[in-house]
Design a protein around this nucleic acid. Structure first.
Lengths: 133, 133
DNA sequence: TTGTAATATTGCAATATTACCATATAAGGC
DNA sequence: GCCTTATATGGTAATATTGCAATATTACAA
């Protein structure tokens, strides 16, 4: 029997959910590239409403993926620790080998996730270049 | 600008969703411990309906987290490759430092994920009922 | 104090996901 | 062929999540 209780798995699943949203992933990638960004800078980069972004930031923070530092009325966000970029890199590694399958998964893929008719954009070299044809 | 398209982030988020369900995590942990299990063995270990399990297994397979080998009428499932247990270990490492926060995250935590109001759970009558008044 | 910019919180309609059941397929033995 | 077991698929009611707009808070400067 696996050593954890059912409740623990539910909570652990909730942790993974923090990574399961395109906006939250874009936030993490922006922070990985830039190191530190405040909310206004993220609003600008992501092109979404401030309130909406704020909800996602709160989620990432309580789940331990980002940390904040207040400076005057600006709040600077950055990745919480070095395990976070490691986790992103490992996930991306597996994902990039299986993105075509993910797009067909009825459980997980949304009705516009990519390969319904058009497979991921040709602008995305980092992934496209690995795709077998 | 982060190098990926919005569509790619959506698909990547879908990949993480494969990890974001307690039953799918329990499947992965059982496979990590046992190496290989068929569907009937998993039904028994998890105590859920076979059809329900089958949907989750299909999800894990198309997302590249598990692989199968048919042997007669049995289908044996195992983790897809060595990156999968690495990913689980890294995720668990971060999660175990932040589970209390995860439980409070409005975006991600379900209404029964664990410590709604830190430890002595409201459902724990044995404690609550003792409180005078 | 008042004004204003930066960020957070809340309410809710629209949308997506889950759990369960019934049914379908596939393989092996008789 | 027919029966049984192992696994997969489809429909759908119940439930959970998202996106957005309105509102609240906080910090600073004048």
């Amino acid at each position: 029997m696996a050593g954890k209780s059912k409740e623990t798995y539910t909570l652990w699943a909730d942790f993974w959910k923090a990574l399961s949203h395109p906006i939250r992933l874009r936030i993490l990638e922006n922070l990985r590239e830039e190191g530190t960004l405040n909310v206004s800078q993220l609003v600008e980069r992501l092109g979404i409403g401030q309130g909406h972004l704020s909800n996602h930031l709160a989620c990432l923070k309580t789940c331990g993926l980002v940390q904040t530092e207040a400076e005057g009325r600006f709040i600077y966000y950055s990745l919480a620790d070095s395990r976070v970029p490691q986790l992103l890199a490992l996930g991306e590694s597996i994902f990039s080998d299986h993105w075509a399958g993910v797009a067909t998964c009825v459980v997980v893929a949304r009705p516009g996730s990519g390969s319904e008719e058009t497979l991921p954009r040709a602008t995305d070299r980092s992934l496209i270049d690995r795709v077998p044809r």
